[in-house]
Amino acid sequence: MTLGAIYALIALGYTLVYGVLRLINFAHSEVFMVGAFGSLFALHAIGFDTAHAPPHGLVLVGVLVLVVLAGMIASGVLAVVLERLAYRPLRKRGAPRLAFLITAIGASLLLQELFALRYGRNALAFPRLLARSTAFKIFGAPVQVPQIVVVASAIGMMLALDRFVANTKLGRGIRATAQDPETAQLMGVNINRIIVVTFILGGVLAGGAAGLYGIYVETIRYNGGFIYGIKAFTAAVLGGIGNVRGALLGGFALGLLENYGATVLGGEWKDVFAFTILVVVLMFRPTGLLGEQLGRSRA
């Protein structure tokens, strides 16, 4: 459930960009990874390292907000830079879809290796911010404080996004671009601006996920985005890529299912179980649980 919330936040980035550009942004996993590094460095900058005692009260709240905001800023900035440097030049030239895909994978590897060179290939530890105390029990299963914080914050961010896309003018522009980009231009929608906004939104959500991941998992390494990125992609496909609510459903469903699989089959089968779900969904319901809604489906 907790990881599901993180998958769902990352999945939203895949789904938003896919809805508007018909592009699977495979560099999105590194947008997440960089967000986690951003969160960690923000903690270092204010003097928190692994030796530091967990903060309390208002300081704790402030630190948590800082961690999440730093992740959002780092990821948001990277997402925009990627769009500008990697994707926009291709769009201007009308490059074939395959070129975008290869560029995305290239950008993904480049970022991983840059971070490996600069910060090493070992995992870096986050200082513990939230004690692993049990808040309450559901059917005998303990629910810990960090889990509550992660799930609640993630749901908050998702609701904010949902409202934004449904009710604001920019949100309408995003939906119009996803449904019919040519007609959207005739209405006065600046497609390039909408694309940048979409990358920012996806990046900020991935960054928020990265901050929560840091608080919950407490470690990050140069390739730490890969497995989360691909699971979030699975979640997006599971729910129906291009569909905002599908990404949420897919994320939580995947989190629960893989946890269930891990309990029944053993922890080492967790990833196998998750990707088996992806294959099965693609075989029997290629449009995902909810189908594509943001995009060109007929209502």
Binding site: R172, Q179, D180, L186, G188, N190, Q293, R296
Partner: peptide
């Protein structure tokens, strides 16, 4: 294209160009 609306060109495109997932009101607002 997106700046020509402001100058006073309205275009009802071929094939109607609906935003199918939006309501009639939302389409008009667009």
């Amino acid at each position: 294209a997106h700046q020509l609306v402001k100058r006073g060109i309205g275009h009802a495109p071929e094939g109607r160009g609906m935003f199918p997932g939006m309501t009639v009101t939302e389409n008009l607002e667009m």
